[in-house]
Nucleic acid binder design. Structure first.
Length: 358
DNA sequence: AAAGCGGGGTC
DNA sequence: GACCCAGCTTT
């Protein structure tokens, strides 16, 4: 009846059986996860928790995202709570987590789901929602709704390209990997299988030093047979990051500091920002003489450039060619640490509050 | 297909 | 320094 399952001795069936056996004994315990034992007893994952964790974990490590996840579910226990909160509250709570379009899409997605009365329960329905792409739709559908679908993230790419010694570079073979892994997804435990593949990649089949001696897939692994484990996956080379330079103003007025909500598009879109100049490709001359109006310089690495930012106090305002983005707010100094500044501005603030050499 | 988009950890 | 991380969206 199921062509792919007609032969239980296919490599795929063996792979899923071995990895699920390993997962039952070695699954990581995570706040948003239902353990394989609990799942076997009928415990269902909370789709809201699965979705929220998946969005937070896009290109983000578990230690970094976990605190945010716990804060969010405590503050907004249901997706309806999240959907009815002010958008800036979500933006501020996301500050420091990065990739802020995720926060904007999180809010938009929550509102769509609340309006629909609940989550779509298929990957085809999920992928239409903002912030949910090929990986996340598969992950939520498999983990929360047991759809027989593959969730191919960086871990799964690594495990699969090693297992099959796939020489073609990523991201060209993303779709090939998805099609291959989809054939391994077991009928009865798609959610556990998805999490098992990710756990294996994160804890055993690691990027630099895979622990093949404890790997449940070491026997069929072609990369191991070739002793070329770390040659996979092959990736197209990345461009080197250019440098940019600019200045930021710490405008202290009375008991507060001037900040502004940044524009809805582009870098750090929708976050709370400090007044800043344009960020240029060439170093600019100091706006004021080296005196007490100049605090120092901070460095921050973004996805596609490295920024050097000179930090000045209020008195330098007229000397700087500041960009006016939105409506200014005066944030009380006592609330600044929890106001939702992204990391680059937090670094500038920290330099002022605890000066150090540059 | 390529570029834009954060931030922190590791070796 | 380079690489990695439960990638998505826009061009």
């Amino acid at each position: 009846m199921y062509p792919l399952m007609s032969n239980t001795h296919t490599p795929g069936a063996e792979i899923s059986a071995n990895i699920l056996r390993w997962y039952d004994a070695s699954a990581r315990s995570l706040p948003w996860r239902v353990s394989p034992q609990d799942r076997a007893e009928g415990v269902k994952p909370n789709p809201y928790h699965v979705w929220l964790s998946e969005i937070m974990l896009q290109q983000t490590t578990i230690p970094h995202a976990t605190r945010y996840f716990l804060d969010f579910v405590k503050r907004w226990p249901t997706i309806e709570d999240l959907a009815s909160a002010p958008r800036d509250d979500i933006m501020n709570a996301w500050a420091g987590l990065g990739y802020y379009s995720r926060a904007r899409n999180l809010y938009a997605c929550a509102q769509e789901i609340a309006a629909q009365g609940g989550f779509p329960e298929t990957s085809a329905g999920l992928i239409k929602l903002p912030g949910i792409g090929p990986y996340t739709s598969g992950a939520i559908a498999a983990i929360a709704f047991n759809e027989q679908v593959a969730a191919v993230d960086g871990n799964v790419e690594r495990v699969t390209t090693r297992l099959l010694a796939m020489d073609a570079p990523l991201p060209d073979i993303k779709k090939d990997i998805k099609a291959i892994v989809e054939n391994w997804v077991p009928e009865d435990r798609p959610g556990d299988f998805a999490q098992a593949m990710m756990d294996l990649g994160a804890t055993v089949c690691t990027p630099r030093s895979p622990d093949c001696l404890i790997c449940p897939l070491s026997e069929p692994c072609k990369a191991r047979a070739l002793v070329r484990q770390t040659d996979f996956p092959v990736k197209t080379p990345k461009k080197t990051k250019p440098m940019r330079h600019g200045a930021v103003l710490l405008a202290i007025a009375g008991d507060g500091m001037v900040a502004e909500r940044r524009a809805d598009k582009g870098l750090l879109a929708g976050t709370l920002g400090l007044p800043t100049t344009a960020w240029n490709d060439v170093p600019s001359e100091p706006a004021v003489a080296s005196d007490d109006r100049y605090i120092g310089r901070v460095e921050h690495v973004f996805t596609h450039f490295r920024l050097y930012l000179d930090v000045y106090t209020s008195e330098a305002a007229e000397a700087l060619n500041l960009i006016v983005e939105g409506e200014e707010e005066l944030i009380p100094m006592s609330e600044l640490s929890s106001a939702g500044l992204p990391s680059v501005f937090r670094k500038a603030l920290n330099l002022y509050q605890s000066p150090r050499g540059t």
